[in-house]
Design a protein around this nucleic acid. Structure first.
Ligand SMILES: [Mn+2]
Ligand SMILES: [Mn+2]
Ligand SMILES: [Zn+2]
Ligand SMILES: [Zn+2]
Lengths: 137, 137
DNA sequence: CATGCGAATGATAACCGCTATCGGAACGGC
DNA sequence: GCCGTTCCGATAGCGGTTATCATTCGCATG
């Protein structure tokens, strides 16, 4: 794998943020430093970097993929209001995995756990809206 | 919600199988009993039935949605070789959920856990292939 | 330093699962 | 039977992703 300037800038941007950007968002970030880059190059390299184990691809059912500079095991929690994705450390997962392996007979090589709900910011916003609404009524 | 013949046949087929079929696969099943049904009707009703809580939509990152007649909480395990999806009962999940809620500050309303690996059938097939290969070399 | 070859890039077309749209049919309360 | 509402079938459109292909780049080698 050649480390071209495009590739290393894409890797750098992914590692710099903790926001789990989509391919489009990575494209925007990378274009600030490399205005002539192609979206195809971004997709290609996100894939190459994932297969090289340098980043993680985060598959979120029903919405565009996101990419993650953290490659250690962790859980994602997604906000149903604003779409942000945050990290949560986990320990139970290893236990669950071995249990699933035993019960199902599968040889497990990976998992994908995502909780969905409303993030603290959006909860606050919602409380604000409710209060304002009550006040005016 | 009217229970049309299309709708009830779609529900029946979903409930009858344990294979977690995709929309296309449901379409094939339903056409055997209703040859003039439209794929749009299948998609529409899979959505309506999900929102009515009669079936579950299973989002599997990176591959088409599947549908499930089981509506109780359970985990899915997917085979990376053949794509089949099996059920696994779970208890740890509730504990993990409340922990994630506390740590992240999110108000959690759902989750999505999927393990991926190789199913027993495919493991057997792979062992067979290896044995044959060794024998001929 | 010139040469050559495989890998990577940029531009863009194609793909695929899904959703929206729309005219017409079916349902069901009256 | 009439009429508003819901649903249907057919099909066009959409969005994220992948494939294609001509061109350029990186780099080993002479
Ligand atoms: Mn993460
Ligand atoms: Mn299931
Ligand atoms: Zn939020
Ligand atoms: Zn299998």
């Amino acid at each position: 794998m050649r480390m071209t300037s495009q590739r290393s800038i894409i890797l750098d941007e992914i590692r710099k943020t903790h926001a789990h950007p989509t391919a489009d968002e990575v494209y925007v970030l990378v274009r600030r430093r490399l205005p002539r880059v192609s979206l195809a190059t971004v997709y290609r390299n996100l894939d190459v970097l994932t297969r090289a184990g340098l980043i993680r691809t985060v598959e979120l059912g029903g919405c565009p993929r996101r990419y993650d500079g953290r490659v250690d095991d962790h859980i994602h929690v997604r906000c149903l209001e604003c779409g942000r994705v945050d990290d949560v450390a986990d320990a139970l997962l290893a236990r669950a995995r071995s249990r699933v392996e035993k019960v199902s007979g599968y040889s497990i090589s990976g998992h994908h756990l995502e909780f969905a709900g409303v993030c603290p910011d959006c909860q606050r916003r919602a409380r604000g809206r409710r209060r304002r609404k009550n006040a005016e009524s």
